[in-house]
Design a protein around this nucleic acid. Structure first.
Lengths: 153, 153
DNA sequence: AGTGAAAGATGTCCGAA
DNA sequence: TTCGGACATCTTTCACT
C-alpha cells in the first residue's frame, strides 16, 4: 500500500464508478496497473466492497439513536451480539470501555418504532441490565469517508 | 419509491458494481427502466453516491472512539461544527439529547494520535467545557448498510 | 509492477409505445 | 414508465517488458 493506492481509494470513496482510465490519469498509471492494484487491495480486504450511500431519512428512517447497553453476566455477551447481528436497524454494535459494555447505532422509522425495537428486541430480559439512549437531533457530519491520505502511516 | 426501488438500492449497497442487466433480472425490469429509476433516485438524493467500503484498520486507523462534547455557550456551537467538518478523522458529528451537546465518531492511527487530536483540535479552549471519551475494543457489527426493504414505510 | 491491444460486457442515448 | 436497438465506453484478459 503506497501513496498511489491511497489516492485511488480516496477517489473511489467519493466516486465509486470512477473508471480505471480516470483513476489511471489521476495517479499516472495505465488502466491495467490500476485494475491490478485494485484487485490486490480487494484480495487483501483493504477494499471490502463497492457500494452506494443511501439517504436514511429519504428511505423512511427518520430517527437515529445511540444506545449504551450494560450486561452484568459476561456469559450473555455472545448471545447479545448474535441478536444484534440479526436486527437490520442496528447498524453498529461496538464493544466499548466505560460503565457500559456495548454502544449501538440504531435507526428507526420513528420514535414509536424505536421504542418497540428497544423494548422488544434489544433490551433482552435477563441479559441487558441497564441501557442509556441518546437521540440524535441532527447530524452536521455523517459520512463513512475514511481518508486514506491524511493518515500518518 | 416503491418495492422495486428498495430492492435495487439494497442490492447496490451490497454490490455497488451490479450491472443494470443484473438489477433488471432481480426486479423484472429492462436495463433502461432500471437506469431511469436510478437516475431519478440520484436526482432526488435518495441515492447520495456510489462508493467503496474501506477497512479502516488496514489503512492505518487502529483506534475508534466515541466522544461526547459539552458546550456551555450556544453561540459557540456553529464554530465547533465548522471545525469538526474540517477534521477527516471526525467521521460523524451528531447534535444530541442528554447531558452533552454533541457525539463524535472519531478514528485515529493509535491512542497517541487520538490523544493529540482530542487535545489540540477537538477540545477547543473556551468552547468545549466538558467531554467524555469511550474507546471501542472491537466491533461485532459495523456496517453502513441501510435496509430499504425491512422498513415499515 | 508495469504496458498496450483486442475482445467481450456494460453504460448510455434514442425513438416508440 | 417502460421497452429494445445502436453506439460509445469500460472491464478484462493476454502477451510482453
Amino acid at each position: 500500500m503506497d501513496e498511489l493506492d491511497r489516492r485511488i481509494l480516496n477517489r473511489l470513496q467519493s466516486d465509486g464508478r470512477c473508471s480505471y482510465a480516470d483513476l489511471g490519469r489521476l495517479v499516472g498509471l495505465s488502466v491495467t496497473a490500476v485494475k491490478e492494484r485494485l484487485d490486490k487491495l480487494q484480495r487483501n480486504d483493504v477494499l471490502r466492497r463497492y457500494s452506494i450511500i443511501v439517504d436514511e431519512k429519504k428511505v423512511g428512517y427518520g430517527v437515529l439513536a445511540f444506545v449504551f447497553i450494560g450486561i452484568d453476566d459476561p456469559e450473555d455477551c455472545a448471545a447479545f451480539e448474535r441478536q444484534m447481528l440479526e436486527i437490520p436497524q442496528v447498524q453498529e454494535c461496538h464493544h466499548v470501555t466505560g460503565g457500559f459494555n456495548y454502544l449501538l447505532k440504531v435507526i428507526a422509522n420513528d420514535m414509536s418504532r424505536l421504542e418497540d425495537l428497544l423494548l422488544q428486541r434489544i433490551k433482552l430480559p435477563g441479559v441487558v441490565s441497564r441501557s442509556e439512549t441518546t437521540i440524535v437531533f441532527s447530524s452536521p457530519k455523517n459520512s463513512p469517508f475514511v481518508d486514506c491520505v491524511a493518515n500518518g502511516a
